[in-house]
Design a protein around this nucleic acid. Sequence first.
RNA 1: UGGGGCGUCGCCAAGCGGUAAGGCAACGGAUUUUGAUUCCGUCAUACGGAGGUUCGAAUCCUCCCGCCCCAGCCA
Length: 574
Amino acid sequence: MGENETAAAEAGRDFVRDIVQADLAAQRVQTVVTRFPPEPNGYLHIGHAKSICLNFGIAQEFGGRCHLRFDDTNPVKEEQEFIDSIQEDVHWLGFDWGTHLYHASDYFEQLYAWAEHLIRAGLAYVDDTPPEAMRAARGTLTEPGQNSPFRYRSVEENLDLFRRMRAGEFPNGARVLRAKIDMASGNMNLRDPVLYRILHATHPRTGTAWCIYPTYDFAHGQSDAIEGVTHSICTLEFEDHRPLYDWLIEHLPVPAQPHQYEFARLNISYTVLSKRNLTRLVREGVVSGWDDPRMPTLAGLRRRGVPPGALREFVRRVGVARANSVVDVALFEATIRDTLNPVADRRMAVLRPLRLIIENYPEGQTETLPAANHPDAPERGQRAVTFGREVFVEQDDFMEDPPRKFFRLSPGREVRLRYAYLVTCREVVKDAAGQVVALRCTYDPESRGGNAPDGRKVQGTLHWVSATDSVQAEVRLYSHLFGRPDPGADGDVMADLNPNSLEVLTEARVERALADPTQRATVQFERQGYFCHDRDSTAERPVFNRTIGLRDTWAKVSDKRQAAGTAAAPARTS
RNA sequence: UGGGGCGUCGCCAAGCGGUAAGGCAACGGAUUUUGAUUCCGUCAUACGGAGGUUCGAAUCCUCCCGCCCCAGCCA
């Protein structure tokens, strides 16, 4: 590492780390404490991964700690299912909160006491104004709001009313507790924000113990203070809340003075990341569930075969800044490939089989050939593949009338079957409809392993699978859930769905070594992409999800030619 | 003409007064029993615009333009 790189690393990689480092250096904080504060009302997605990596990453790098805290202040939206999935997902991503698992609901009693403190200080009051009237009195972005007629109630009356709110004497919406700040503030959050509302609902953790619940603003900063959080990192839309965050910390006898910092949330092209939209996709059955492999949820990405390290690396590559931005989904895909390439075992699988009959190979004979698990990593060993008189190759790897530069099989052309032999196409077999159903070939017995003794070269190397010693499998090919880079830009995101985001192939054939569904690691199907067993997989009926395809420059060239009308892409025979 | 932010290559993003990092994408080329990988090379006289300060500005000042967030008893 050169001096510059060292200096860069020491300076921190983003503005948040710079702040943390400066605070540590100036001794403003002894131990950095961060927190990841999800609301358990949905599944975690890749946008959360950015926040998780930032918070846990900073704690790790600077020798501090990071808490997992559920922001469970709204029982009508929150569920245990989400509380469980969030913990599973954070762990899967590679982070651990140790004993520091907390809930805003752990602090309800303390929060309540602080609310009374505010009332006694004349800084909060119970307001009987109905919701609609309150909205009207809040003013607009350009006009100040009006003081509530209940703003000047006595401390005694406020205390009495607030206690009766807690006691359950009033129905939902009848009254709220508000901070007394400034109805004329340019910052809407300071126009006497609601601190407590009445919600007769069962809370996943506190049950029916409470019927009043603190709002986000009243719970968050105080929870940070209770836990000794030093750097409360959130997204940009909370920037306007910071003055309120600070106001509460200043006026309450909290045990610490945490500070809030905001960064830009993650956006990705061809993707939707808002909880509302993700929930819609699930509820409306567009996808099979929160863990549908097309979903940007951590559960979906995991099922898709994306390793957690790819998420961490992606977040690192994206960086952390304050400018709203949309990251090209291609960066994410490149990161997945880069992460998988050095570690994924290679296997052969034929997605759309075309029978290849080797006429001069003895009938009934088979042999096993060694194939490298990873050509660039010999230490990963080999597995045996079976070769015989009939094998399957990819339909896309044959063209009866190929364009120039097509390096694969066509009448009279010789290619290599990877790790096996050189074969030459002698005859095309068609059915009554004129569809290609098989190829008759000859092989060079001297080319065992893939090289001819005379040193002649072939342009193409094809993957293949034995017709007799392969297993039929289902392969699910996924592509972007949305058909445009900015789904919803014209209105409804549902109108931008990609109708071909899932293609199911049921006739695929995979080599024997792939039939074990307990092998969960993502592998590379040579020349095609990265795949992993879906949880639907069984030994009799393997099911694979395509994690991501390999880069395919031939497809790119071929598409360009097609667009230019110069040549046709390989025609599928079925 | 309320308040708060942001504008550096097609997409992210460093840069913090001393003469534009890096990644992705794209485009060339080498190697290759994966048209993959790997490897080389090209890719911002220019930092939203206009003025100004300075020996020197993406970095400081002024004005202008554009985009984002806020009027939940959501978070």
